[in-house]
Design a binder for these strands. Structure first.
Lengths: 197, 197
DNA sequence: ACAGTAACACTAACCGTTAGTTTTTTGGAA
DNA sequence: TTCCAAAAAACTAACGGTTAGTGTTACTGT
């Protein structure tokens, strides 16, 4: 079989990391738009084609945590304690993610993202993906018998919460307020509760 | 004075229309990705720079109704009868807009949009703009004393409703279901109701 | 040791987009 | 009518992200 032992994979990962680190450093030093792909490749000492073998686009160089983010949300849904309600679990996870964005270390990166239309646009595309994957995680939970559409809808709302709270003056308060509304939406999607009213 | 009489404006509008019509025809004939900007410009018999003087990007050639859409939503909020509740008014407008997207005539265009990553990404950017402008319209209504954050949140949800319902198998039912959830979110944002509970 | 393959390099181009400059068209005044 | 200022459009030439095609090197499993 072909389960490659370490060295090749390590070298590949090292190349990828070197590219990502170089790119982020240059972007923060000179500004995203002022740094070209050819600059990054030269500084990282790789060919342009190599760079694009590791990252699908210039914007992807900035969003490395993309996959983590997606998985943390799905995990927050699937790894709940038995009987633990959905929305508070999501609220807790989103709050942690928002705090991570607004923390000292990450702040310059997000300021750069907010300043660049290309990066904002890329973030939007990611958000749709995240919402879809979150919707699937919610729909997969047997304890929550909502319609597929209700799951997709609430997933969108949760992703919106992250986007809105991330840019708010008081992120913690924003998460509180938005999740109160999401809770209302989730309750309204409960068909049994609607029948009992 | 500098109030140009009609001809110049008419010719400019005609050029713009010719470009848009040519582009849409070619896109639908050969596919969005298979048609280049230079193809469109040649077929419309204008210079490439002229095309970009009328449209800010290739994607913008497809989304001409953009401005209409934005204004119709804001109008649905500001032009309510006195005492008419917000959410049903928005529900009515979104339903009309969704039906317009899924109507016979527009269907091929939206199929093309859904098939092209570039167009989907552009649509996402538009949606953010629409949500912001809708949020302002809602915040401007003196009868609705919700926080600015609640207005922005509900605006996002309404835009999400359009996006989700547009792609649903049964758009009318989707609008119903999603707006039941939005109603729940809107009620939960009412601080006075929360104090009474 | 060897063959196959994954990672990478190099060239050259495509495509969307823009800056700089010049020509044509148009509306209004002399 | 004739001429001028300004708008619209054209032309040229490039820039920057991205990809295809083609080798070359280095690692892995046999």
């Amino acid at each position: 079989m072909t389960v490659p032992t370490g060295r090749r994979e390590r070298k590949k990962a090292a190349t990828r990391q070197k590219i990502a680190d170089t790119a982020l450093r240059l972007f923060l030093e000179r500004g995203y738009d002022a740094v070209g792909i050819r600059d990054v490749a030269a500084e990282a000492d790789v060919a342009v084609t190599t760079l694009f073998a590791h990252f699908t686009s210039k914007e992807a160089l900035v969003f490395e945590q993309d996959h983590d983010f997606e998985q943390r949300l799905a995990h927050a849904v699937s790894a709940r304690e038995p009987g633990e309600p959905l929305i508070p679990a999501l609220r807790h996870e989103i709050l942690a993610l928002v705090r991570h964005c607004t923390a000292e270390g990450s702040a310059p990166i997000w300021r750069m993202i907010d300043a660049s239309p290309a990066l904002r646009q890329y973030e939007e595309t990611m958000r749709l993906r995240h919402a879809e994957s979150l919707a699937e995680a919610i729909a997969a939970d047997p304890d929550l018998d909502r319609t597929a559409m209700a799951c997709r809808t609430i997933a969108r709302f949760v992703i919106d919460a992250h986007s809105l709270a991330r840019e708010a003056a008081d992120p913690d308060a924003a998460v509180d307020e938005i999740f109160r509304m999401i809770e209302g939406a989730w309750d309204a999607a409960d068909v049994r509760a609607a029948a009992n009213s």
